[in-house]
């Protein structure tokens, strides 16, 4: 079992996750299907940060959680370090779980309010029996606290005593405890103040440098995504519509949705803001319960032609590393 280092750490192939919509009390019947993630494929190289952006409800969280096996996938395959969670059992599954961790958006909901900081951070150590004695575990927790910039004397405090940014760093410490290779960061900074966001982002970057971590960075703040990610995938209604290296994507967006999204990002520069032409999209993101036919973006697309409503655009590599799904891109 020696995975080649050239092999991507995370491989996602045609992953779908559908949630049935059920009605009825005793005998439930299915009245619909939320196509939250509807066939996405991508790789994440070791040590790389892949950004996943898109509007609310497009399936970013679902994708991240399905990747970690928190939701069983409807179809498709996720390989982490060459292994699929669905085909591993017992100790092998535990070893796989140790390698992949998650950081959540809400620093209030993601820490058990009845546990001390010590128990929270030590949980992965305890569950994976990484350190045999309580004393060693406490030492390791102290070290992790120091690592994320919190004082080790706060070991026995409860989450409610910390500010949002500090809680988020406790979440980071917990994710790091088991020495994972891969961390899904699900909007880790959206709930934080601007002055605190930079603290957490810099911490994530430093940790990545130091421990060669691989991140899937889910966000809707496109400025931050450009800053922190190596490559960026844009999601729309359960599908990835464009994927490219970050500067390529931001400077040369091919998909009309990416272009619209980027044109709407506010830029902290009044002169530029005044000069800018926004591409205003018509209407709202449709429901994933019955997504539009053909290209899912066509009802809002400024470039839409008749065939866009009929055929699903292919996922094509336009230039090396720049993938897009659109009929109208040459």
């Amino acid at each position: 079992m020696t995975p080649l280092d050239s092999q991507p750490l995370v491989q996602v192939k045609n992953l779908t996750k559908h949630f049935p919509v059920l009605r009825g009390l005793v005998l439930q019947r299915q009245v619909g299907l939320v196509r939250a993630v509807d066939g996405i494929s991508f790789d994440i190289q070791r040590g790389e940060t892949l950004g996943l952006v898109g509007e609310s409800g497009c399936g970013k969280t679902t994708a991240g959680r399905t990747l970690l096996g928190l939701y069983p996938p409807t179809s498709g395959e996720v390989l982490i370090d060459g292994q699929d969670m669905r085909h591993t059992r017992g100790p092998e599954l535990m070893a796989l779980r140790r390698k992949a961790q998650i950081i959540f958006q809400d620093p209030y909901a993601s820490l058990n309010p009845r546990w001390t900081v010590n128990s929270i951070i030590a949980e992965p150590l305890r569950v994976h029996r990484l350190l045999p004695t309580e004393k060693e575990r406490v030492e390791r927790v102290k070290e992790l606290l120091r690592l994320v910039g919190l004082s080790p004397t706060h070991l026995n405090r409860f989450p409610h005593e910390f500010s949002g940014g500090q809680r988020q760093r406790i979440g980071v410490a917990r994710a790091l405890a088991s020495n994972p290779l891969f961390i899904v960061c699900d909007e880790p900074i959206s709930a934080l103040d601007v002055s605190i966001q930079a603290q957490v982002v810099n911490l994530l970057e430093e940790l990545q440098d130091q421990f060669e971590l691989t991140y899937l960075f889910i966000a809707h703040d496109l400025s931050m995504v450009r800053h922190i990610c190596d490559r960026v995938a844009v999601m729309y209604l359960g599908l990835i519509v464009e994927l490219a290296e970050r500067n390529e994507l931001y400077e040369n967006p091919l998909h009309p949705y990416t272009a619209a999204l980027l044109s709407a990002v506010p830029i902290p520069d009044p002169k530029q803001e005044r000069a800018r032409q926004r591409i205003l999209l018509k209407g709202e993101i449709p429901s994933p319960l019955n997504p539009p036919s053909g290209c899912r973006f066509h009802p809002r697309c400024p470039l839409a032609k008749a065939h866009c409503a009929e055929t699903t655009p292919a996922w094509r590599e336009i230039s090396p590393g720049h993938w897009v799904a659109c009929h109208e891109v040459a």
Partner: peptide
Amino acid sequence: TSPAPVSNIAALPLDQL
């Protein structure tokens, strides 16, 4: 079993409550 990498991010000032 006990990988425990040690930090060399010493620069980070520690938050006190």
